[in-house]
């Protein structure tokens, strides 16, 4: 993945998570992956198009998702959730949208043109994601609620 794309995603993930949750966040080591990988349980996905093609995947366990959604809802003085209901899913989707949106804005300022697709969310056990022909950058983020893995797979349009 092009070097210039890495930082905007790492920075915006860090900024947005800290802003909406007001908790301590540590960033893990970045790494590359090209084969199929397991999905932790809840995965929000946003497609990218424009100068590039690809997608960003936000992957976390169901438990983490519930805690993050509750944290976000509470910060807006709304009821926390007990299970991953529609409200919970919408909240996680929105988080993914905010992070990707901010990253794309940063990239736009650097002169790269990206468009986003509406986010979608997948939940379930024993899921796997495979990208053929493109390798994924994994940005692990450690939160007190658990781990979010941000999985960015982008390639240039030749």
């Amino acid at each position: 993945m092009r070097v210039e794309y890495i930082n905007p995603f790492v920075e915006s993930a860090y900024n947005v998570l800290q802003e909406v949750l007001s908790v301590e966040i540590t960033r893990g080591e970045l790494y590359l992956k090209s084969t199929s990988m397991p999905v932790l349980g809840v995965a929000a996905i946003i497609g990218l198009a424009g100068d590039v093609e690809g997608r960003v995947l936000f992957d976390m366990s169901k438990d983490t998702a519930i805690k993050i959604a509750s944290g976000m809802l509470e910060s807006m003085e709304m009821e926390p959730i007990e299970e991953l209901n529609d409200m919970g899913k919408a909240t996680i989707t929105e988080l993914a949208n905010m992070i990707t949106g901010q990253a794309v804005t940063k990239l736009h300022n650097l002169g790269f043109k990206f468009d986003l697709t509406p986010p979608a969310i997948f939940t379930g056990d024993n899921m796997e994601i495979a990208d053929t022909g493109v390798e994924a950058l994994i940005v692990p983020m450690e939160l007190p609620f658990g781990k979010i893995e941000i999985n960015v797979a982008i390639r240039e349009r030749n």
């Binding site: 993945m1 092009r2 070097v3 210039e4 890495i6 590359l32 992956k33 090209s34 053929t132 022909g133 493109v134 390798e135 950058l137 390639r155 240039e156 030749n158």
Partner: peptide, 15 residues
């Protein structure tokens, strides 16, 4: 030049 964070053992997108 296009610099990429890339592992040569993974699939490559170079033409």
């Amino acid at each position: 030049i296009l610099f990429e964070y890339h592992d040569v053992t993974h699939t490559s997108t170079v033409p």
